[in-house]
Design a protein around this nucleic acid. Structure first.
Lengths: 132, 132
DNA sequence: CTCCGTGCAAATACTTTGCAAAGCG
DNA sequence: CGCTTTGCAAAGTATTTGCACGGAG
């Protein structure tokens, strides 16, 4: 049932690009970043490969921020913070969710929980400094 | 600095529509629901008013699910669950976040946290039953 | 040789916006 | 009357897709 997958230099570059940053990039950010080295890269390819990686679980999607989907090469569960001032997305290396509690919920509601993402919103340290 | 706001029957209807359901509706859902009673309602108006309510804090946005933004008239912090099978959005009336812990983080990182939303993903009770 | 991967451009799918007319206070 | 709200349609934006060709196995 699995689809055969050939090697592709561009696909590799896209994955590396996502993994090389903690900025939680958008598809376009990756496209722009790789464009110099791969002048014939197309945005469609970036989208197609990101979708594939997401499906494979190689990367995750943080969700849509200001109309653009943001990705993360760090698959380990962690909390994200979105600044309502500058729109940046930061990692918060804190564990909030209790796995036991989650298992309890699954049983109680007769459902399956695959992931639990905590999203914080507010003013990031940089903007916080500037404002006051 | 506050903007004057006139009364509008349609605005009221839109707010009631969001509040009348726990389905976490999309803009289009609201539009379709009100269309029979307000035949000259326009989708633009729905979008404009939802944006306004969101800004006022009268409603909240759950985020974008499958390309569409979903709203919630229940402003009280609570957890949401998105089914990856049918795309439905459910409420999970559980409190996971510890406010003290949150305050601690704010101080530690020198930032301001305005909201903390937990989003679960998995298979909802209905789909869970059907699948097995 | 047989599929997979890609560029390119066209097509989608939501959402936003400009403008003139209608409505509230 | 002055400012707000709205319908309508056009514009915008991010993302997806069809197709023909180059590339990996």
């Amino acid at each position: 049932m699995e689809k055969r997958r050939n090697y592709s230099r561009k696909r590799e570059a896209i994955l590396n690009a996502v993994r090389s940053t903690t900025s939680h990039p958008t598809a376009d950010w990756i496209y722009e970043k790789l464009k110099p080295e791969y002048p014939d890269l197309s945005l469609g390819t970036v989208y197609r490969n990101l979708a594939q990686f997401k499906e494979d679980g190689t990367i995750i999607s943080i969700g849509v921020v200001n109309g653009q989907e943001r990705f993360d090469g760090n698959v380990k569960p962690h909390t994200h913070f979105v600044c309502s001032e500058c729109g940046c997305v930061l990692d918060v290396p804190e564990e909030f969710i209790n796995p036991d509690r989650m298992a309890q919920i699954e049983k109680e509601y007769h459902m399956r929980i695959d992931s639990a993402d905590l999203l914080l919103r507010g003013i990031c340290p940089d903007c916080f400094k500037k404002i006051r």
